[in-house]
Design a protein around this nucleic acid. Structure first.
Ligand SMILES: [Zn+2]
Ligand SMILES: [Zn+2]
Ligand SMILES: [Zn+2]
Ligand SMILES: [Zn+2]
Lengths: 167, 167
DNA sequence: GCCGGAATGTTATGTTATAACAGCATCATG
DNA sequence: CATGATGCTGTTATAACATAACATTCCGGC
C-alpha cells in the first residue's frame, strides 16, 4: 500500500489496486456498509489509474461492460464511495480520484501533474498545521478543505528537462 | 482598501467597490489592457458583493441591464478579468469572486463561509510557505494552487452560538 | 410469502462551459 | 480617406457536468 508522496512511478499497480480494493471491502464490512457490485465496479474503474476520472468517463466504462446506466447511477455510486472515503473529488477538474489509503484518516490535499495527469495525495502534517492556523487566526471554523496544487511532478520535470516529449 | 483577513463585516462597501474598480482601471491602463465597457460592467457585477457569483448570475445581471449576451460573452469577460487578476475563480463552487487587492501580487487562497456566503482572500505568508515546502519536498513544480477552506466565519459562529437565525 | 428499506433504473431537466464562425470597432499606415 | 490588421463582441450550437423526481427491483427480517 503506497502512502508515499507521489505515486511511485514504476510501481506494481495491479497489486496497488488489488490491495486498496481489499482494504475498501474490509472497511465497508466493518462499517456495515454495502459495497455492492455496482459500487465495487465503479471503485475498480476509478482505481485503474492514479489519474482523476470524470463521472462520464466512469459512465463510459460501465457502458463498455454492457450495462447502460444513466448518470444518476454513477453519481450515486460516487457519492457512496466518497462518503466512505474510498474516492475523493478533485474540484479543479470536476473529476474523481481513488484514495489509496482509505483506512487512514486524513485531509484531502493533492498534487496534480499537468503533464502525466497523475494526482498524488499529500499527507503533510506541517501543511495541515498551517491551514489550521490560518483558519484559527481568522476566527474561522473550517469544515472542509480543497487544496489542489497543479504543476509538474518530479518525473515529468526530468522528462521535460531531458527534452523528451511523449504523447 | 481592505486587504484584511475577513472582509470587515460592517464596512463601507460602496467605497470598497469604488476604490477597487478605480484600482483595476489604473492597472489596466498601466498594462495597456482594455477594460472595455462590457468588461468593466462584468467586474462591477462581481464586485457588488464579497460572495462568489456564477457566470450565469452575471449573465442574468447583464440581461437585466437590457443587453442579452450569450454565455461566451460572459466567459470571455471573466477570462480577461481573471488574467488581469481582477477576479478569481472559486473551483469548489464553479463561481467567481472579485479580488479586492488586484495590485498586490498574491496567491489565491480563500475562506468560504457556508452561512453568509462570503469569500475572504487569505494573505498568509506561513501558509504560502507551507504550501511551497510541501511541493518542494515532493520535487513538484507548483504552477497554480486551489486552496479553499469552507466553514463558518467568525461573525456567523457568533450568530449561531447566539441562537440567531438570519435569512 | 410479505413487508420495509435500500439500491438501482429511468426520464427529464438543470447548470456550467466551450467550439466555431460572423460582424464590428479601433487604430496605424499609406 | 481607404485599407487592412487586430482584437472585441455577437450568435448559434453543442459539450460537459450534475440532479430532481419517480418507478422498479433487490434483499433481509418476520
Ligand atoms: Zn498504483
Ligand atoms: Zn507528471
Ligand atoms: Zn467591500
Ligand atoms: Zn459567514
Amino acid at each position: 500500500m503506497s502512502t508515499s508522496a507521489f505515486p511511485l512511478s514504476p510501481h506494481n499497480h495491479q497489486a496497488c489496486m488489488r490491495e486498496t480494493l481489499a482494504e475498501a471491502e474490509a472497511l465497508a464490512a466493518t462499517r456495515g456498509e454495502r459495497l455492492t457490485p455496482l459500487r465495487r465496479r465503479v471503485l475498480e474503474i476509478v482505481l485503474e489509474s492514479h489519474r482523476p476520472v470524470g463521472a462520464y468517463d466512469v459512465l463510459g466504462a460501465l457502458a463498455r461492460d454492457g450495462a447502460r446506466p444513466a448518470p444518476p447511477t454513477v453519481y450515486r455510486a460516487l457519492d457512496f464511495l466518497r462518503a466512505q472515503g474510498f474516492v475523493h473529488r478533485i474540484d479543479s477538474r470536476n473529476a474523481f480520484v481513488a484514495c489509496f489509503a482509505p483506512a487512514k484518516a486524513h485531509r484531502c490535499h493533492f498534487l496534480l501533474c499537468r503533464r502525466c495527469g497523475r494526482a498524488a495525495e499529500i499527507l503533510d502534517a506541517a501543511l495541515d498545521q498551517a491551514l489550521a492556523e490560518t483558519a484559527r487566526q481568522a476566527g474561522f471554523a473550517a469544515e472542509r478543505e480543497t487544496v489542489e496544487i497543479a504543476g509538474l511532478c518530479a518525473d515529468c520535470r526530468e522528462d521535460a528537462s531531458a527534452g523528451v516529449g511523449a504523447a
